[in-house]
Design a protein around this nucleic acid. Structure first.
Lengths: 109, 109
DNA sequence: CCAACTTAATTACTTTTCGTAAGTAAGTTT
DNA sequence: AAACTTACTTACGAAAAGTAATTAAGTTGG
């Protein structure tokens, strides 16, 4: 049972961000609209999970899926206004990671 | 296999945040040092996972565990400087959630 | 025309993580 | 001594993730 005393909006926002891969997908899309296979290889997610995550983000109104009936057909994913609004947060995470994150493995005792 | 082209520091930072509950634990500790059972009930996490998350956050140098040998004994968790540095990010998430998150269920078709 | 290739998925199966509940150890209160 | 509290740990079924193979629709090359 969830008996938390947090703001439901904040809790939901954190829920989106703390689902594995969603943050990276959003971050990747901040550099512009992209195709499925581009996202897949840029962040190292499997197709199975990327498919799932894009669907969820579409449901949340964060990502938009567009089909371009060119030849060959092209499907592009991009951020909606809601998704783009996460840019300041991503910038903060970039800053924090540069200032505080150490990629070395901690010493094993 | 992870063949991503992202900055390893950023990727690690996102990895920390996108592990379930860690974000909420950090957010909760921003309001000050707290005991295990306080965190547990404020964010609605189970003891089993809170114990695990606090250990991980301690290993990452984000959370500090202090034992006060009073009577009764008291154990407090607080944020380190590294942990406190996440405040601006949390404020951004608060802003975003207030502006964009809708807690209503999406319509079922 | 047909075999091989590409993209955007989906399905099948194994491993890992989560959630619930119960148990434990140390100390406190009644 | 029995019941309670805190800070955990253990056990176990359920859910999610990871890997790999498959599919559907269309494209290219011979």
């Amino acid at each position: 049972m969830n008996t938390s005393q947090l703001c439901p909006k904040f809790e939901k926002a954190m829920g989106i961000l703390s689902k594995r891969w969603t943050g990276l997908v959003i971050y990747q899309l901040l550099s512009g609209p992209q195709r499925f296979c581009t996202i897949e290889s840029s962040i190292g997610i499997s197709g199975r999970l990327l498919s799932d995550r894009l669907k969820h983000l579409e449901n949340e109104g964060i990502v938009k899926r567009e089909v371009f009936p060119e030849t060959p057909i092209r499907i592009e994913y991009s951020l909606t206004e809601k998704g783009l609004a996460l840019e300041p947060l991503m910038k903060e995470l970039e800053k924090w990671s540069q200032n505080w994150v150490d990629t070395e493995e901690p010493l094993q005792n």
